[in-house]
Design a protein around this nucleic acid. Structure first.
Length: 384
DNA sequence: ATCGGAAAGT
DNA sequence: ACTTTCCGAT
C-alpha cells in the first residue's frame, strides 16, 4: 500500500481496511499500522496460508503456523529487524485486555479475534457466507443467495452490531458526508469537510461487488464518532434524533441506545417508502427476541438496514425536516411490549400511505419466526 | 509456550 | 497510545 494519503480505503477482495491502517513509514501524520491489522492482512492473503491461517470451524480463530516467519514479516513492516515471535506475542498479549484478541488455550500459536468488538468499530459489514473468513458486504448484500447452514452466533452478533453501528451513524447526520463532498474536498481545501479528520476517521464504508475489488467505494459514511478503532465506549456520546428538534439523550443501557437508534431510523425509512424507492428496505424492524439465543439483550430491537446503495438517498432524506414527531417513550414501551419479528421476504411493494405513522411498522408482529435457531435465514436475499 | 510486569522507544 | 525490549514465573 502506498501512502499518498489516497482517499480510497484499502480494498482486498472481500475486506476493506481503513486508510490509516496502511500508513507507510514515509507518510507523516498518519498512524502506524497496528499488529492486528497486519495479522488480518496476512490472514486475508492466499500466499500466507502456510504462515498464518484461519482455523476452520472457529470463527475468528487463527493459527500462526510459522511464528518466526510471521515475526519476520511484522518486523519488516515495522522496520524492526530484531522482531521475533517472543516480542510479537507480547504485543498480541496486550490485546487481551483490550478485547481484541484472546488466546485459545491448549492450542499452540492459536489466537482468536473478538470480532464482535472489532466489527462494530471498524468493519461494519461482514459477509455471512464464510464463517471463518469475514468478508465485507456490499452491493451484493441483497443479491447473494446467502444462507449459511447454521449461522454461527458470533456472525449473527457481528451483523447485529454492524447494524447497530450503522444505525448510530445514521443518527449522526451531521457526521455523514457524501462521496461527492469528499471528492470535492480532495481537490480543494474549501470543503467544509476536514480532510485530515476524514482520513483519520477510521471508518469508511463502501461497496464491493463480491468478486473483484472495487477501486473506489461509491459511498462513504465518515467521519464517524468512532474515530478510534478501540474506543471503549459505545456509544460514546448522545445521538441526535433525526426526526425532530429534540435531542434524545442516551440512556444508560445499551438497550435504550439501540432503541433510540432504531427509532431514529424509522422515519427516513418510512420516508423512503413513501417515495416509492424502498425496494431494498426492510419491511419490518425486528427485535433480537426472534434471533434465538443471541448474547444480546432479548429486547434489543434492531433495524434491518437497506443496502448501502440506498444510503445516500436515505441520508438526503435524513436531512429533510420532518413533520412527524416521534415519541421516544411511547416507542420504547411499544417495542418492549411487542415481540416484533422480521419479515425478510415481504417487500413493501406498496408504499405506505403518506400519512401513515411509522409506529405501525413496529406494531405488527409477523407470525413466523424466520430466524429461529438452526434455521437458515435468507435475510440477505433481495426481495423481488 | 505462555503470561504479564516493567521500562523504554516511536 | 501501541508497541518493543527484556525477563522471571508458570
Amino acid at each position: 500500500m502506498h501512502c499518498g494519503c489516497v482517499p480510497s480505503s484499502y480494498w482486498l477482495p472481500g475486506l476493506a481496511f481503513p486508510d490509516w491502517a496502511y500508513k507507510a513509514e514515509s507518510c507523516p501524520g498518519s498512524r502506524q499500522i497496528q499488529l492486528w491489522h497486519f495479522i488480518l492482512e496476512l490472514l486475508q492473503k492466499e500466499e500466507f496460508r502456510h504462515v498464518i491461517a484461519w482455523q476452520q470451524g472457529e470463527y475468528g480463530e487463527f493459527v500462526i503456523k510459522e511464528p518466526d516467519e510471521v515475526a519476520r514479516l511484522w518486523g519488516r513492516r515495522k522496520c524492526k529487524p530484531q522482531m521475533n515471535y517472543d516480542k510479537l506475542s507480547r504485543a498480541l498479549r496486550y490485546y487481551y485486555n483490550k478485547r481484541i484478541l484472546h488466546k485459545t488455550k491448549g492450542k499452540r500459536f492459536t489466537y482468536k479475534f473478538n470480532f464482535s468488538k472489532l466489527v462494530f468499530v471498524n468493519y461494519p459489514f461482514w459477509d455471512m457466507r464464510c464463517p471463518t473468513q469475514p468478508v465485507l458486504m456490499g452491493n451484493n448484500i441483497c443479491r447473494s443467495p446467502v444462507s449459511p447452514p447454521g449461522v454461527q452466533r458470533e456472525l449473527l452478533q457481528n451483523t447485529i452490531l454492524a447494524h447497530k453501528l450503522l444505525a448510530n451513524q445514521l443518527a449522526c447526520r451531521r457526521m455523514i458526508h457524501s462521496p461527492l463532498d469528499y471528492t470535492r474536498c480532495l481537490d480543494r481545501k474549501s470543503s467544509s469537510i476536514n480532510r485530515e479528520s476524514y482520513m483519520n476517521s477510521g471508518c469508511h464504508i463502501g461497496f464491493h461487488d463480491g468478486s473483484v475489488p472495487v477501486p473506489s467505494p461509491p459511498t462513504y459514511i465518515s467521519p464517524t464518532r468512532f474515530a478510534s478503532p478501540l474506543s471503549r465506549s459505545f456509544p460514546p456520546a448522545p445521538i441526535t434524533a433525526l426526526s425532530g428538534s429534540a435531542e434524545w439523550q442516551l440512556g444508560p443501557s445499551p438497550l435504550s441506545h439501540l432503541n433510540q437508534s432504531l427509532l431514529s431510523l424509522e422515519e427516513p425509512i418510512q420516508n423512503l417508502r413513501e417515495q416509492g424507492i424502498s425496494s431494498h428496505l426492510p419491511s419490518r424492524l425486528f427485535s433480537s427476541q426472534s434471533l434465538g439465543q443471541l448474547p444480546l439483550q432479548s429486547k434489543e430491537a434492531l433495524a434491518f438496514l437497506p443496502p448501502l446503495s440506498e444510503l445516500k438517498g436515505q441520508l438526503e432524506i435524513c436531512r429533510a425536516p420532518s413533520s412527524v414527531k416521534l415519541d421516544p417513550d411511547a416507542e420504547l414501551r411499544s417495542l418492549e411490549q411487542q415481540n416484533v419479528h422480521l419479515d425478510f421476504h415481504g417487500t413493501d411493494k406498496t408504499p405506505s400511505s403518506p400519512h401513515a405513522k411509522q409506529t405501525s411498522q413496529i406494531k405488527q408482529p409477523i407470525s413466523s419466526n424466520k430466524l429461529s435457531a438452526g434455521s437458515s435465514p435468507n435475510w440477505l436475499l433481495k426481495p423481488t
